[in-house]
Nucleic acid binder design. Structure first.
Lengths: 225, 225
DNA sequence: ACAAAAGTGTTAAGAATACACCCATGT
DNA sequence: ACATGGGTGTATTCTTAACACTTTTGT
């Protein structure tokens, strides 16, 4: 006898993987192969088998459907659990959604999937289920995480210029900052160190390259902006 | 044909309801009636039926097991979804945990439950499943919510003194504040208004009573402390 | 020489911190 | 009159915000 004897919803995971592409915040989507919503774009996801935790299932499914390894992501954390919406086709379900951040990752076609690609946030089509909501929720969460953590490291390459860093903040937070104040503040957090390398590009003064001194999530000593 | 054909874990909800009792942060627990962990104290919870959302199930279960109405709580929000731990008895499951805040609420014995009571955080016994972890997680979340929201309103009575308010902050945040600075800051947030009533008690000067001007969750304009 | 992005400093206003005494009441 | 908790102000430091010009490079 198990501890319950009533039927409960199915358990699924979905993942919202963000990456910057051409200075645009983009989300990894896959095209569904099966009904319901066959052919529709959707967040990578699937059912959670009995012998996997939701996080393990999320990692495996990302890899199966997009060829992306979890190690390529700066982090992956649980975002929220969504109930299936009223008029959705399919069985009643909950979807445990994970959010991840990465950089320079490219989905590969796999045996389980025809199509996987990053879509810029403002070009996302109408997705299966309530996946559009999930993305919006994830974007909000990401914004707030940038206020009180160093999460941004996961979106940037190993070395970057201060201007690039500022642009990433501005893109994700959908805001603009003063260049001098931004530099003063970001340096005061001691998250990044100057290297003695420079980035030369275009007909202008070269920019000094910086790198993060931590590559794990940490809380900031005070909030950003 | 449904959209999946593999078995997934069972879906449960649990709730962490906080309340202050004698200036101690306390959590609502119920004593289990069934195996596994029969007789053990646990967070109120149960399986989610197919026709309920997790939030509705959480509300119903709190009411069934403790006699508390959801309307008595200042708020109830989803906290985190826990996978059942490896060596737990019972079927594989996920537990969607909700956190709620209340004041002056008293559990009533109901037909579904023998025992429900608030335990101060530092007197909580070893609970069923990993419910002790869930409480710790909820306490952390509550602390951070006090930094950036007005959530504290949900723990205080309609009218309160500034000293009471400070004590509540100190209790939940496990910290101490300077009285003058605390008052300056809390007033600068415009969350509370002075009333012209006073609280007289004990052999000392009576204290002015204040009330919150909002009773819904809001974000603070800057962070507290 | 010019265009383009990199880099840099000061001032003013607001917020946080540290800190000590008087006030109103009951006994 | 004394014990108890309520109530109040100032000075210092730190943080934020506003703001404009010089530097280095490629063409």
């Amino acid at each position: 006898m198990t501890k319950h004897n009533i039927l409960t919803p199915g358990v699924f995971v979905n993942t919202v993987i963000f990456q910057l592409i051409n200075e645009e915040l983009s989300v990894l989507l896959t095209q569904r192969e099966d009904e319901p919503y066959k052919e529709r774009w959707a967040l990578p996801g699937g059912p959670v088998p009995l012998d996997e935790s939701t996080q393990i299932a999320a990692s495996r499914i990302i890899n199966n459907k997009t060829g992306i390894q979890i190690k390529q992501l700066g982090f992956l954390e649980q975002l929220y659990t969504f109930d299936s919406i009223k008029n959705d086709p399919g069985v009643p379900a909950v979807s445990v959604v994970y959010m991840g951040l990465g950089k320079s990752i490219t989905p590969k076609a796999t045996s389980h999937n025809r199509n996987a690609q990053f879509y810029p946030l403002d070009q996302i089509p109408t997705l299966a289920f309530d996946h559009n909501n999930m993305i919006e929720y994830a974007h909000q969460r990401l914004k707030s995480k940038l206020y009180y953590t160093n999460a941004i490291f996961a979106l940037l390459p190993k070395m970057f210029t201060l201007s690039q860093l500022q642009t990433v903040y501005e893109t994700v937070m959908e805001d603009k900052f003063d260049k001098r104040n931004f530099r003063k503040k970001i340096l005061s957090f001691n998250l990044i160190n100057a290297t003695d390398e420079q980035h030369m590009e275009g007909a202008h003064r070269p920019a000094r390259l910086y790198k993060f001194n931590k590559h794990e999530l940490e809380y900031l000593t005070r909030s950003f902006e």
